[in-house]
Design a protein around this nucleic acid. Structure first.
Lengths: 122, 122
DNA sequence: CTTGACAGACTACAGATGTAGTCGTTACGT
DNA sequence: ACGTAACGACTACATCTGTAGTCTGTCAAG
């Protein structure tokens, strides 16, 4: 079942979505450039993700190779839906309108959205 | 600084954005219809929100009237931005595309988005 | 004046989260 | 064969969150 994934855990998942399977050390190394976590911290997060059913382990000698069990897309979809439900009554246009009001939309964003909508209208 | 507001706390804020100022009991009563929380729980959440600087109190005899100190819009904007940054590299069209792929967009949603984009293009 | 209802303050406590240390084992280099 | 580095398992601990109980003071009704 879709247990929630915390922020820190998500950073670990990201590496494994980028490339898998990886050893704990490889994950730690990949993350090292972004966050300054000790290897132990990464290992704890990996263990928690395994416990949550988000990662699969595969023995490789006496260590593990980790790979994602949940899809990145599925996670994004769940989290996005959750936000939209909580904050915008489940409707998406107020969400987009919010970004419009905050003026955080670039011309590129607008063009992309336009293309997307046109595609959807068909 | 904008301390984060948890899910439960958000439910309390919602009532106060709907109508303020309110007493603790009024908030509890208003929420009671949606969640079955004890009055104590609501009071704890109110106190935490005050501690976080999200609510202001105003004495009314021997009790307090609570009112929001942060804007609903500002909170929505912050949370939305946070999600988009974390999950979609800060770009919004992939977020919308995600909903499109998940087929959770109604015709109404699409029409609204279209109108919104047209307005933005000017 | 007494009592009881109610208000806020303080306390409780389990589970999640962020961040890491320690322990016991094992494989590899020498 | 032996030490040592590295690995996973277990432990740690402060903070946040969800959910509520208890304590103490006070206002209002009788």
């Amino acid at each position: 079942m879709a247990e929630r994934i915390s922020d820190s855990e998500y950073a670990v998942m990201e590496q494994l979505w980028r490339a898998a399977p990886l050893t704990a050390n490889q994950v730690a190394e990949a993350i090292g450039s972004e966050r300054s976590w000790s290897v132990q911290t990464v290992k704890t997060l990996l263990a928690r993700l395994v416990a949550k059913g988000a990662l699969a382990t595969q023995a490789d000698g006496r260590r593990f190779l980790y790979s994602p069990l949940i899809e990145r897309e599925a996670h994004r979809a769940g989290e996005s839906q959750r936000l939209v439900d909580r904050l915008f009554g489940g409707r998406i246009s107020p969400l987009v309108a919010q970004f419009a009001d905050a003026e955080t939309l670039s011309d590129t964003d607008i063009a992309e959205l336009k293309a997307l909508i046109e595609r959807l209208e068909k």
